[in-house]
Design a protein around this nucleic acid. Sequence first.
DNA 1: ATGGTCGTGTGACGA
Length: 258
Amino acid sequence: MKIVSWNVNSIKARGEHVKRYLKEEFPDVLMLQELKGLDFPAGDFKTLGYESAYVPQKAYNGVAILSKHPMIVIHEALPGDETDEQARYLEVDITGTRMIAIYLPNGNPAPGPKYEYKLAWMERLYARLKALRNEDHAFLIGGDFNVIPEDKDCYAPDKWIEDALFRIETRKPYRSLINLGLTDAFRVFDTRDQQYSFWDYQAGAWQKNNGIRIDHFLLSPTLADRLESCRINKDPRGWDKPSDHTPIEIILQEKAAA
DNA sequence: ATGGTCGTGTGACGA
């Protein structure tokens, strides 16, 4: 089972890119972030064989999950704050596996109210994942975490040290998610530095490979045991009019027969 | 480099 996460930076601007990707890679599940608008081309994806669940918002944010298999929506918002209006969380069940797509807040500038929102959001996420773990629920979470886990996940750590994506107050709660017993799928197979999922549009960042690794999949223990591969697919970042992010792809072994 | 680039929706703001 192939599961992918991709921050597309507007589904309106990147609809054709997503369709091309589905036709070339035929993932079972595709998580999308930063839809950046209320419109969503569910009909186009249906034609290609995908069911859609999406949580849109005007102009900003927005997450979706496309699935070849039957999908049941569990939560369309991160529990823990009824006043939070931002479209950043979608939790579904696909053939008995819980799957969560997130667009974690960026948090810049830090310090400031946006950063406080990010840290509070991470606390709520921790509570949600801890609850799933305590229920012994098999789950995976993918998306744009807006967290650079380690020095080797950015091109120049000294330039990022005060940034909301890399500050120690950000990395600490990310580590707490890992410490729930979750596995960073990418690091199971690849310990190299300079393996990035995002390159800024500015200053020739892509050409110079000045990137950061901020798109992740975290797996609960039974799913980590089924993990066959994880790779960052850099091809779509090189397409015409690309997103500033590129897809991260995992493959899980099929469940053993009951 | 005290720049630089995209996207939304049409003027700033977010990343």
